[in-house]
Design a protein around this nucleic acid. Structure first.
Length: 556
RNA sequence: UGGGCCGUCGCCAAGUGGUAAGGCAACGGGUUUUGAUCCCGUCAUCCGCAGGUUCGAAUCCUGCCGGCCCAGCCA
């Protein structure tokens, strides 16, 4: 708790608790079920659930379902799954703003009776006109002075479905000249003759976000209602409702800057466009910044939580470098992912000093410094595969520049022999199809003998016992730092190389036992995860989560 | 140009009158059967700018400059 990063929200809560303002805090995460959660929501979840956890309080999950036109059960299910996957438990059962529709309706009647709300017949266009602009005050609606009886009656008719959609709306009577646009008689209820995923056909009028949110917080006993900066201007309205209504508690709203990450889009609308246009494979495509996409990519819950802590919580809007997320992912996977060898672009090597049918088995640790991860067996045979990029015919390449196999020289096979390349076999097209080499006897598990100087260490897999696999290499979806900058032209920044599917890969036999979503470090390549949906024991599919850090290209 | 908010190292971010934490990145060096990891070290005399108050300011005051948000019967 004390090693938690300090931020202004924690300070506020600490103060409130110290002053006895609350015995226990209650926060809430209020997604609208109109899309999948993305990395920005992950941040918000970590903030809300994290703060509750940190101070011994609870966090409610409340679906903000006031707009049946855009919401679906599919989204509710995915959101619940995402939160659990991140490792958080919400207080009691999940809640819905729609749970409070009856009370909210009563609250609206309360406002009408006190002359604080009225039914306005202005059309949408007219209402916009009357609202004025940023620099000019608005004008009062001609319906603003209807009597309480008239308003009560009209509101009743709205609720009973006697009035057409768009024909009128219930508005708060505040101040059409307020410099804060949110106070210019905001909409409280509008008519929507749509079935609702929770309440069915019970209602044909639905409360607006502004009218529903604070009251729902109060009804749930939320103490700290934490949202993002764009709702700051709504706080006066939030407080206005709370002061005008007989609510059971007085929640307070606090705002923090939403998370922005470069090379990434976090707009549910735009993400939905990527899905609907088939640019990606769905909301959980591994290239998507959605929680389910990252999960499928192999990103871990703890790396996301750690990333959130690293980034911190403040009121200063900025753009976090994707490299920081990369760091958090690598840090977790480096500590916890078992090691394995996989050859992505196989090139056969035949050992001429080994007899036909030669086979021996080496053991290698599951992890260099995690004994609890056990050992694995590596069958070594007369023919193996190495990666094509780990061999070069040109022996004039400097040892510093190319620490791999070169004609005539030695290289260490990871966890096995030092070998020496003798000869290259090519096909008619001039492509290398095979390398003839020799193993240096007695070099397994021991240093190189005098005169043998391996250039480096490369990975390998037995040709006869390796398992075929499909490996999908993912890269960033956009090739510009600010794909979200412009308007709707973000599609032009799509990275054409965001996905490469390699079908002829060969992986070490121990990987056949891997469970869906198991992560591995393919040594010298990066971190890969077994695809949770498409991988089968006899047809393995791995997704590259992220490559290993590579600094040598720049240095040499 | 009405209102609200923000501005501390390339990026994120502590700090709330007592003389600039930390992380990422970067750059040196060491270890290494992963060009990874790990380890050690370097990296803001300065806190958007200009004045002022004070023994003393990133922290208080004034004025500028720059950026973000708001004119949905979306959230």
């Amino acid at each position: 708790m004390s090693d938690k990063p300090s931020n202004f929200l924690a300070t506020i809560i600490e103060d409130d608790l110290a002053k006895g303002k609350h015995d226990k805090i209650v926060t809430r995460f209020p997604p609208e079920p109109n899309g999948y959660l993305h990395i920005g929501h992950a941040k918000s979840i970590c903030v809300n659930f994290g703060l509750a956890e940190q101070f011994g309080g609870v966090c409610n999950l409340r679906f903000d379902d006031t707009n049946p036109e855009k919401e679906e059960q599919e989204y509710i299910d995915s959101i619940k799954a995402d939160i659990h996957w991140l490792g958080f438990e919400w207080n009691e059962t999940e809640k819905y703003t729609s749970n409070y529709f009856d009370t909210l309706y009563d609250y609206a009647v309360h406002l009408i009776k006190n002359g604080d709300a009225y039914v306005c017949d202005l059309s949408g266009d007219q209402a916009r006109e009357y609202r004025g602009t940023l620099t000019e005050p608005g004008r009062n609606s001609p319906y603003r002075d209807r009597t309480v009886e008239e308003n009560l009656n009209l509101f009743e008719q709205m609720r009973n479905g006697e009035l057409d959609e768009g024909s009128c709306a219930l508005r708060a009577k505040i101040d059409m000249a307020a410099p804060n646009m949110n106070l210019r008689d905001p909409i409280l209820y509008r008519i929507r003759k749509k079935a609702h995923h929770q309440t069915g056909n019970k209602w044909c009028i639905y409360p607006s976000y502004d009218f529903a949110h604070g009251q729902s917080d109060a009804l749930e006993g939320v103490t700290h209602s934490i949202c993002t900066l764009e709702f700051e201007d709504h706080r006066p309205l939030y407080d206005w409702f709370i002061s005008k209504l007989p609510v059971p508690a007085v929640p307070r709203q606090y705002e923090f800057a939403r998370l922005n990450v470069n090379y990434t889009i976090t707009s549910k609308r735009k993400l939905k466009l990527l899905v609907d246009d088939g640019v990606v494979d769905g909301w959980d495509d591994p290239r998507m910044p959605t929680i389910s996409g990252m999960r499928r990519r192999g990103v871990t819950p703890s790396s996301l939580r750690h990333f959130s802590d690293m980034v911190g919580t403040s009121r200063a809007g900025g753009v976090v470098d994707l490299g920081m997320l990369d760091f958090a992912i690598r840090e977790d996977l480096n500590d916890n992912a078992p090691r394995a060898m996989a050859v992505l672009d196989p090139l056969k090597v035949v050992f001429t000093n080994l007899p036909e049918g030669h086979r021996e088995v080496f053991t290698a640790p599951g992890h260099p410094n995690r004994e609890d991860l056990g050992e694995r067996e590596l069958p070594f045979t007369r023919e193996i595969y190495i990666d094509r990029s780990d061999f070069n015919e040109d022996s004039s390449l400097s040892r510093k520049k190319f620490k791999r196999l070169v004609t005539g020289e030695w290289v260490r096979l990871r966890n096995a022999y030092i070998i020496q390349a003798d000869e290259v076999i090519k096909n008619d097209a001039g492509e290398i199809t095979e390398i003839r080499a020799k193993v240096v006897e007695g070099t397994v598990g021991s240093d190189a003998p005098e005169g043998v100087r391996p250039r480096g260490v490369i990975h390998w897999v037995s040709a006869s016992e390796g398992i075929p696999a499909t490996v999908r290499l993912y890269d960033r979806l956009f090739d510009t730092e600010t794909p979200d900058r412009g308007g709707d032209d973000f599609m032009q920044y799509l990275n054409p190389e965001s996905l490469k599917v390699l079908t002829g890969c060969v992986v070490e036999p121990s990987l056949a036992e891997g469970a869906p979503e198991q992560s591995y470090q393919f040594e010298r390549e990066g971190y890969f995860v077994i695809d949770r949906y498409e991988s089968k024991p006899d047809a393995l599919v791995f997704n590259r989560t992220i490559g290993l850090k590579e600094v040598w290209e720049r240095k040499v």
